[in-house]
Amino acid sequence: MSEVKSYLVGVFDDDDVLLAAIKNLREQGAKILEAFTPFPIHGIDPALGIKRSRLPQAAFMFGATGTTCALTLQISTLGFDWPMNIGGKAHLPFPSFIPVSFELTVLFAALGMVGTFLLASGLGPGSQKTVFDPRSSDDKFILVFDIEKNKQFSVEKLTEMIKATGASEVNIKDIVEKH
């Protein structure tokens, strides 16, 4: 089943104008669905009310898993499964275990974090997230409003409000959403 949803798409030419517009429109009570920009903009997260990403915590957990796996592997194989006398060294030479433990910590943290990021953002080969305006990956800054969620304003009123904050154009975009 699919349904058509309508969105208002405000196109801005400058990131600072966009930032001011976001603050202004949110103060007026408009609900912004998302902003789409060609590059990360400093200060857009608090303006849009986006919470700080918890990915670094995830990376730490993955890293800790990596350390544990590496130590378990080395201690169990060299220390217990088949202890060998290598140059008269102890069977559990912890200094020798540092390099491999470190490498696996980094490997697990990096892969785990990137995997979490791709999953959380729904990115991956074959994924096609909605592009409201293809110019948003070039030099335009896009603000998208769900018309249904901004019922308190008429479409004309909302368009006017967005224009007043400095948008160079405001378009209505219909997206077919599959369920």
């Binding site: 789409f36 590059f39 990360p40 857009i44 990021f117 991956g124 997230k129 948003s136």
Partner: peptide, 17 residues
């Protein structure tokens, strides 16, 4: 491109990563 659309939320995570 993995379906990237440059949303602010994704940029926020992208920067953290």
């Amino acid at each position: 491109a993995f379906g990237w659309n440059g949303s602010a939320k994704d940029w926020s995570r992208f920067e953290a990563v």
